[in-house]
């Protein structure tokens, strides 16, 4: 059983990828020859595919919270409102 990062959470943030360097390279390679906008679309598709695989809303919420960690709201963003 793999130890989880925080007591009481379900999201596994301990090492779980067999060959991390291989995975990382594939992730970056997936975006080769794409514009920034196309990359954003591919990332969004990847998130949706993985989110559906996970399914559990508690884990998904914890992942979203972990993703937002350390990212401050952008005050210059005039499009929000």
């Amino acid at each position: 059983m793999i130890a989880h990062s925080l007591p009481g959470t379900l999201l596994n943030t301990q090492p779980n990828i067999q060959a991390p360097d291989d995975f990382y390279q594939e992730l970056v390679d997936m975006h080769r020859d794409l514009s920034a906008q196309q990359s954003a679309l591919v990332n969004a598709k990847l998130i949706l595919l993985l989110a559906n695989h996970v399914g559990d809303p508690v884990i998904l919420r914890e992942a979203m919270r972990a993703a937002r960690q350390d990212i401050e709201p952008d005050q210059s963003d005039g499009t929000r409102g």
């Binding site: 906008q37 954003a40 679309l41 990332n43 969004a44 598709k45 998130i47 949706l48 595919l49 499009t79 929000r80």
Partner: peptide
């Protein structure tokens, strides 16, 4: 969609 991110998820959903 009201933001770039929201539009990306929308279009990603439709493509999938």
């Amino acid at each position: 969609p009201k933001s770039e991110a929201s539009r990306a998820f929308r279009d990603a959903t439709l493509l999938l």
